[in-house]
């Protein structure tokens, strides 16, 4: 642990040269902050971790009831509607939760940011772990439902981590931009809940992209609206997850996949640049 040769140079606008290696060296802090968030989360609750099962289950049941039974969408699907809804619910809860957590991570950890130095990126990164854990529990729920409905996914399940990662990166990039802006403009914390609420309806959680495409293609501006629809990274992630989990139920949607990848890349590049530019003066505005 001899690091006495390491020299630090501080001046305006200068972040350390070994920016990424410094983040890697702080991985212990990353884990411990993630652990803190997870440990603290269900303190003083009676049901505890059970909430991580109840939330997706109830959401899915409501969806099945409203869209499947009342809107009668379940008559057009070959497999049980519960299984169609679950991938949507998993991605949606993961994405919306991560977005809220990341966008609030810097402001929410003011007590740390204003008192100690550490690579600032650790904070938003570690705040995503809660969502990931929840998503894993929700996948467990999906497996149970598969037993219940006696359904076996095919080999494409191996792509599940790919789409989770893409959803993760989308939420992280977008959330990070919001987190940086939130330091200076708290308007962001007013906008995020609104966006989340809006996204709830604009994303194919309880319906499918195929249905959207089919209905939109009957109108004159359908192609344009469908393009707008696929810009939503949640749509791409859910389409991908359905493709990998539900066998032959849905075809691979290239359009939403491509726009998801582009969204992730653009957001990440902008987010990291913004973050690095302003992370050294967070304290002055927080």
């Amino acid at each position: 642990m001899n690091s006495s040769s390491k020299e630090v140079y501080i001046s305006n606008g200068k972040t350390t040269l070994d920016y990424w290696s410094e983040i890697w060296q702080s991985r212990e802090l990353f884990w411990i902050l993630a652990k803190r968030d997870i440990l603290v989360r269900y303190k003083q609750t009676v049901l505890g971790v059970a909430w991580s099962i109840i939330r997706p289950l109830l959401t899915a049941l409501v969806m099945v009831f409203a869209f499947g039974k009342i809107a009668k969408l379940d008559q057009e699907t070959s497999i049980d509607y519960m299984l169609v809804v679950m991938p949507g619910v998993i991605i949606w809860l993961f994405f919306s939760q991560s977005l809220s957590l990341v966008s609030n991570s810097i402001v929410g950890n003011t007590n740390l940011v204003s008192k100690v130095y550490f690579p600032r990126l650790i904070v938003p990164l570690s705040s995503l772990m809660i969502g990931l854990l929840d998503a894993m529990i929700a996948f467990g729920l999906f497996v149970l439902l598969c037993f219940w409905y006696q359904y076996i996914p095919d080999w494409k399940v191996i792509f599940v981590p790919v789409f989770m990662l893409l959803a993760y990166l989308g939420a992280f990039g977008f959330g990070l931009i919001a987190a940086v802006l939130n330091v200076k403009y708290r308007d962001v914390s007013q906008v995020i809940p609104f966006l989340v609420q809006f996204g709830y309806f604009a994303s194919p959680i309880a319906y499918t992209s195929e249905l959207v495409q089919k209905n939109l293609s009957q109108t004159s501006t359908g192609d344009f609206l469908y393009l707008l629809y696929t810009i939503n990274p949640v749509a791409g992630s859910i389409d991908g997850l359905r493709w990998s989990l539900l066998g032959d139920f849905s075809a691979f949607n290239f359009q939403s996949f491509l726009s998801l990848v582009i969204f992730d890349l653009v957001m990440l590049i902008i987010a990291i640049r913004m973050f690095r530019k302003s992370e050294n003066s967070f304290v002055d505005y927080i």
């Binding site: 501080i10 001046s11 305006n12």
Partner: peptide
């Protein structure tokens, strides 16, 4: 290194 200086090093 909690905040950066405006000038100097």
């Amino acid at each position: 290194r909690i905040t950066e200086p405006t000038s100097g090093n």
